[in-house]
Design a binder for these strands. Sequence first.
DNA 1: TAAAATCCGGGATGAACGTCCCGCTTTTCC
DNA 2: GGAAAAGCGGGACGTTCATCCCGGATTTTA
Lengths: 206, 206
Amino acid sequence: MNVPLFQDYSGRLSRLAMEECVARELRADARRNRARVLAVAAEVFAAEGLGVPIHEIARRAGVGTGTVSRHFPTKEALYEAILLERMERLTAEADAMAASEEPGEAFFRFFATLVHEGATNRGLAEALAGAGYDLDTAGVEAGHDISGRLRTLLAMAQQAGSVRSDVEYADVKALMVGCQAHPGGGTDKAALDRIISIVCSGLRTP
Amino acid sequence: MNVPLFQDYSGRLSRLAMEECVARELRADARRNRARVLAVAAEVFAAEGLGVPIHEIARRAGVGTGTVSRHFPTKEALYEAILLERMERLTAEADAMAASEEPGEAFFRFFATLVHEGATNRGLAEALAGAGYDLDTAGVEAGHDISGRLRTLLAMAQQAGSVRSDVEYADVKALMVGCQAHPGGGTDKAALDRIISIVCSGLRTP
DNA sequence: TAAAATCCGGGATGAACGTCCCGCTTTTCC
DNA sequence: GGAAAAGCGGGACGTTCATCCCGGATTTTA
């Protein structure tokens, strides 16, 4: 699993969901360790990207590498477990926006939310940008379909005439990655908002 | 590291330039091999990205790995040698555009050129995306300062009122990376042009 | 053409990681 | 309280690479 990080995603998340159910029956110390690993990994991946070795995560969590790989048989599985929680929150936000706002506004706001999310989370940005991980399939099985929400919001915004009708989902995704690639994205909020405004104004119907 | 030949550490590309000068005095077979490696590497990196192992490049070039690492002591050095040629061409194009077109048009055209370049060259796109290589410092010593040309064109376009005055160079670079990240960038030219038009319209003064 | 300079091939080396395994410890359950 | 079950630590192993090295081949030189 060295070079092609997160390449094959078919059916992975459903397995994860299964693992989540079984987690209830873990021994007390195991449950504690699992939670600690998850927390540390989320923090480390967000701050330093997916390149951080498992050994390092284990070290910072104060456990052995075996403990990590027992709970998460693969580095990929570990990151999926982290993403799952995050995606759940984001899809919920998308649904709230879709229900309560004008379609165009909902789309632009969700877009901005996703950009901010990735800009302050290096691991997520890498996952989204990476030639491996695919937002489009991840989380679908678990019911947290960010890609689907974004597609829906885009279609609604186009229907309402707020977004250029020739824009496609892939365009939006690429632009999202670009915004997240902004240097100092996590620290320079003004720059991030500026680039978002540039892109959104480009997406708007003239 | 091959110490005796590449001792000048004043800058990566000046070291390269030195190597280029010395290349004239190489033995005939060495010169031939060097050229073949360079050509194969350019092709392979463009098609498959920078992740391709040196061994693989040596194999496809029909030489041993030692031959590659003797001519290019580092993988980075190899890719710099490739970039150098490409950057030379791009800066020339930039200068031509700057001289013959209206500032706004020159900027947008050069931007589009860079995006197309990266979209059809996976290695270049990866390099630009910041996976270990920095457009902003690369080539400056050798006189092929793409970053500088882009900055200049941006400033001129803003001066002429064609581009939003609050846009910064970093924004442009990030947007460029995003456009290049478009799936099927190399194959779907229509999609590429569409995303470029979106971004450019966002950059334009309202 | 033969010695000398130069270069070649590709195996050796070493570092970085992900994953697996097993002897020992902690928890659980009766 | 004690035995069985579950989990732990961290070293071992297998891979993947970039880079180095050296015996031998090739080119240059005189």
